Simulated scan of single mutants.
Amino acid sequence: MPSNIYRSAKTVWDYHLLHQSLVKSDCLFVLCSNDVRVAEYAAQLFLQGYAPYIVFSGNVGEITQGLFPCSEAEHFANIAREMGVPDNCIYIESQATNTGDNIIKTRELLKDKHLDPQRFILVQKPFMERRTLATFEKLWSTKTALVTSPPIEFDDFANDVISYGDAINVMVGDLQRIRYYPVLGFSTEQVIPQPVWQAYQHLVAVGFDDHLSSDLPRD
């Protein structure tokens, strides 16, 4: 990776990470994706006693089409079971197709199950921490949440499933949404320092625009 792209990508990566301290909570809420390390991390948190049950939320998205033999949520739940999480401590929401949908449909699922957790641990990929929490705060403001992700450094993130190009495209798209979603009522306002936005603009200019929303401004 050219050094100028690396610097911009690392700047955006660092911005998305919130480094919040974990506390015991009522529910682990896992926003599923193509990254099974998130499922493994969530299962570890459960086994360490951070919450009494886990909700896995996610259908099949553009990135995961054909990747798993079932929905993202079902695949992640299977990983948790294999790691020792009891089946009666797992809830599956397998219809959501975006972050807002994850929250809305999980809220409906928990209501149907007569569960009313007050404090959540949101579990997500590192570069999606900030937008996940901002979306939760807007759409479920009566609850308390913190967000966490597998402790993976940017230099170690890419694997056989997710390339650095994939990660950078999503990071850039999420930053666009962080900037413009609050006015649409989709998330809470976030301060974006000028160097972070300049890094975003640089990455867009060199072609990392696959995850940008055509409905939002690019700059």
Rank of each mutant, 00 (worst) to 15 (best):
R131S: 12
L139H: 09
I5D: 03
L31A: 08
H211G: 12
I104P: 06
D116M: 12
Y53V: 01
I121N: 02
E72S: 02
I54M: 05
D174W: 00
S213M: 10
L31K: 04
I104F: 12
P151T: 09
L115I: 07
V170K: 09
T135S: 14
G165W: 09
C70G: 05
L184V: 11
S141A: 15
R218V: 11
P193T: 13
H114R: 11
D14I: 03
A145M: 11
L31H: 05
P182H: 10
S149D: 10
V12E: 01
E93Q: 08
L22M: 09
L216E: 01
Y41E: 06
Y15N: 04
F46N: 00
N78L: 09
K105T: 08
L18G: 13
Y181I: 06
T142G: 15
C27E: 01
L212G: 04
E189V: 15
R119Y: 14
A134M: 13
Y164M: 08
S21C: 15
R179Y: 13
G173S: 08
E153T: 14
R81A: 09
Q118G: 07
Q176M: 04
V23E: 14
A145G: 12
A51G: 02
V60T: 02
N34M: 13
R7S: 13
R81L: 13
V23T: 15
L17I: 15
L45K: 03
G49Q: 06
